[in-house]
Design a protein around this nucleic acid. Structure first.
Lengths: 197, 197
DNA sequence: CACCAAAACGGATGCTGCCTCCGTACGCAC
DNA sequence: GTGCGTACGGAGGCAGCATCCGTTTTGGTG
């Protein structure tokens, strides 16, 4: 929503066209070359100049956040399915898997995500989606804790970090077998009852 | 060991001098700016041209591996201490902590390490040190398993990955509190007995 | 000590990518 | 059709990577 629109002016057609073309092209390049892909190349292939790209999306993170928004809707849709499940422990597990796949959408995605999830950088466009995911995770964690299926000391943030780590490892080409063992390790960790220390 | 030395020729003095200066400067830059630091800047500050840097260390990974070698000796020293411990579970835990600190030496270090640890890239200079660390981890794991303190399905590689992940998260500025919970999660995961599934 | 050949140096160079700035063109409203 | 204001886009400055080759340094040798 630009200043022009706020003043009641109709958004220009080329603006929307360019934005859409940029998002579409960017998604393709992120898929093929990872989040570090050349923004110049994206602009050129979208048929716009670099200036236009940077006006629409001032930083790489802004572009990434916009592209991710589309994918977020998939996650929300999954959430509806997951919420149907009666078992809160099963729900948590499926939610973690869904997040992990979301984080694996593009190679290199976990890095900017982690950077955004940490200490408050209010002007990082990825911070908001991260906070939303952490909150959602916390919901599932609490539900499972109420049912006595997850140890009390665990926070949603912890499992968000864990899912992000797994995605990071996966993105570096590790075999699925090792990943399974690691997931199992974490899962049996958070399921266990708290002991002292 | 250059071709010249193999043919029985004495290594030139300037070669050793430059190499030492490069390593020393590189370590400082890695410490201050992370593994992504400008190699041009390193060369300039070491008082050599870029060509010299690239002749000594053809890739960033090669330079990194050389700098890391110094640090490895610290790890080996720690290993001696750890091996003194009677308790193999305690030994494993301390070893994992030692690796984690090693991985945290420079910001951004876990990324190239993970890349080297995965599928065989025989020409990556970081692959060898990684394999060594994985083997060492496996030793500690097996010892603890023999004592019945660690579940049988765990591999050294898994805990290597876990330590690397923790270091990665730490490097992204997460609070120590979250890290402690995550470490605890993993630890109580690998300590648990195997269940079906 | 002087000389030589091999070995190493180092900077100029070309390239890619980032990001900005500003003259120009376009689209909307009237 | 005209005018205003917004958006465009490419030229340009900058930083870093990696290479190549004319020049310098070094150690061995007589």
């Amino acid at each position: 929503m630009s200043a022009a629109e706020q003043r009641g002016r109709k958004p220009r057609a080329d603006v929307q066209r360019n934005r859409a073309a940029l998002l579409e092209t960017a998604q393709r390049h992120f898929l093929q070359h990872g989040v570090g892909t050349s923004l110049e190349a994206v602009a050129k292939e979208a048929g716009v100049g670099p200036g236009t790209l940077y006006r629409h999306f001032p930083t790489r993170e802004a572009l990434l956040a916009a592209v991710l928004q589309t994918r977020s809707e998939e996650l929300v849709a999954r959430q509806a399915d997951i919420d149907q499940l009666g078992d809160p422990a099963e729900a948590l597990e499926q939610w973690l898997r869904a997040m992990e796949e979301y984080f694996s959408a593009f190679s290199g995605l976990p890095d900017p995500l982690m950077a955004a999830a940490r200490a408050q950088e209010p002007d990082n466009p990825l911070t908001i989606p991260c906070d939303i995911l952490i909150s959602a995770t916390d919901q599932y964690v609490r539900a499972a804790q109420l049912a006595g299926r997850v140890r009390a000391s665990v926070r949603g943030q912890d499992l968000f970090l864990a899912a992000c780590s797994i995605a990071w490892i996966k993105g570096n080409g590790t075999e699925e077998e090792s990943l399974d063992r690691l997931r199992m390790l974490i899962a049996s960790g958070y399921r266990q009852r708290d002991t002292q220390a």
